[in-house]
Design a protein around this nucleic acid. Structure first.
Length: 422
RNA sequence: GUGGGUGUAGCUCAGCUUGGUUAGAGCGCUAGGUUGUGGCCCUAGAGGUCGCGGGUUCAAGUCCCGUCACUCACCCCA
């Protein structure tokens, strides 16, 4: 057999885990500040949930989902994103009936069958949040500033740009789409092959085509934000005003397009130039029609998701010094009697809340100290025959190399005191 | 799905152009230099199906073909 992980899937190794914890804890702390609670969801849903939510012609649904038949023949899919599952749970658990405002965050692995590359995996972690119920621009602004605060808390905003736009609603977006098709139709022959296809499937996509000829034509095309209906226009203006007052730095980018069909009105992206062609670190927006589309009551909502692996890459760039593990105390010992005493002492210290490691076997003191050094221990306790006989424990400060002894028979508390005093 | 690059020690890589004895380095690991003392230094050691399969050749890590994987880019996205 081949001992390897599946293509596009990867391990987060122990030496990197601390960095992940740091980022996750920062996000959770900010969520709590805004009154969001965690929702833990299944990784599998009926395929229908995603097909209905994301739109049947989107890339994700058309070719990127891990879909398979359950034993009874029903079609299941490993979640490619989190929002659809939240919406399903919101409806299934009647959350709308419990409160006019529901604030949820989630974290976990998502699955998309794409070609892997830097910052892009088939199994990847996202952290996201959804604010369901309110329609008012203040809720868009709160969610966006919350995202920005998380990224600020992790110390990586120097790499980031926040871009916002509005996609309009069920009234003005179809009208705009027609305008756009009318604009591109005469230019059809000059568009690239993909865009000629997009003209039928998703004309908005032409706007962010990277082919030179297309982007040139697109730059003259009518813009969604100029075509918003009165309600959408004032909504967008109020979101911007609220962000201004919160001091969140953003730029309006009318070219933002969504790969998912459920978005309406406000959309935003947080991008970086540090990750090769994967420039999106977080993205989200308003989706006023989704809950209803899935069979729930009409429920406006805003949400976002960010890619953990991409966040981690930026965090590594910002803080390259490493986030290794650290321990307070290492216990080295020589001799059978000393080993038993070391084990008891380790238990005692851990009981006092002091992180402690010890040598298990009978290695030389030199090699034990080497291991102590690598463990990052601040103090190494040395117990040998001499110490046993005299009822003491030698204490070596690993920064200064200075040594002395505890005088007490039971040295745990004294050691705790020394660590606390430093 | 399409194109480029790369697969040699645990890790990062040299060697391939121009085929030729036992395939190297740095880091890491183990031990010694100190009867019980880490980091720096010195010495020694362990560790390799040269991705896999086939072909050419007296001879292949090196050349050719295939294949798989990784990677970057396109596409799309977090």
């Amino acid at each position: 057999m081949e001992t390897r992980s599946i293509r596009g899937f990867h391990d987060v190794l122990p030496e990197d885990a601390k960095r992940w914890h740091r980022v996750e804890e920062t996000a959770k702390a900010v969520f709590e500040l805004h009154g969001f609670s965690e929702l833990r969801m299944p990784v599998l849903e009926f395929t229908e949930i995603f097909a209905r939510s994301l739109g049947t012609t989107t890339d994700i649904v058309e070719k990127e989902m891990y879909t398979f038949a359950d034993r009874d023949g029903s079609s299941l899919t490993l979640r490619p994103e989190g929002t659809a599952g939240v919406a399903r749970s919101y409806i299934e658990n009647s959350m709308w009936a419990k409160s006019p405002v529901t604030k949820i965050y989630y974290t976990g692995m998502m699955f998309r069958h794409e070609r892997p590359q830097k910052g892009r995996y088939r199994g990847f972690y996202q952290i996201g949040a959804e604010l369901l119920g309110p329609e008012e621009p203040a809720s868009d602004a709160e969610l966006i500033s919350m995202v920005w605060n998380i990224l600020e808390g992790t110390g990586i905003t120097k790499y980031l740009t926040l871009e916002i736009s509005s996609l309009g609603d069920g009234i003005c977006r179809p009208q705009y789409k027609e305008k756009l098709v009318a604009f591109f139709a005469p230019e059809r022959e000059r568009l690239c092959e993909d865009c000629q296809r997009r003209l039928e499937t998703n004309p908005l996509r032409i706007l962010d085509c990277k082919v030179k000829g297309c982007s040139e034509i697109a730059s003259r095309a009518p813009r969604m934000i100029d075509s918003l209906c009165a309600d959408c226009a004032s909504h967008f203006a109020e979101v911007r005003e609220a962000l201004d007052s919160a001091g969140v730095p953003y730029v309006v980018n009318p070219g933002i397009v969504r790969g998912l069909d459920y978005y309406t009105r406000t959309v935003f992206e947080i991008t970086t130039g540090e990750l090769g062609s994967q420039n999106a670190v977080a993205a989200g927006g308003r989706y006023d029609g989704l809950v209803e589309e899935l069979g729930g009551p009409r429920t406006p909502a805003v949400g976002f998701a960010m890619g953990m692996e991409r966040l981690i890459l930026l965090h590594q760039a910002a803080f390259p010094e490493g986030f290794g593990r650290e321990i307070s105390v290492f216990i080295a010992h020589m001799g059978e009697e000393a080993r038993k005493r070391a084990f008891r002492l380790a238990s005692e210290l851990r009981g006092l809340g002091i992180s402690t490691e010890m040598e298990y076997g009978g290695k030389s003191l030199k090699s034990q100290l080497k291991r102590a050094d690598k463990s990052g221990a601040r103090l190494t306790l040395i117990i040998g025959e001499d110490e046993i006989r005299r009822g003491v424990v030698k204490v070596r400060d690993m920064d200064t190399g200075k040594e002395d002894e505890t005088t007490e028979i039971n040295p745990g508390l004294e050691i705790a005191g020394r660590l606390g005093g430093k």
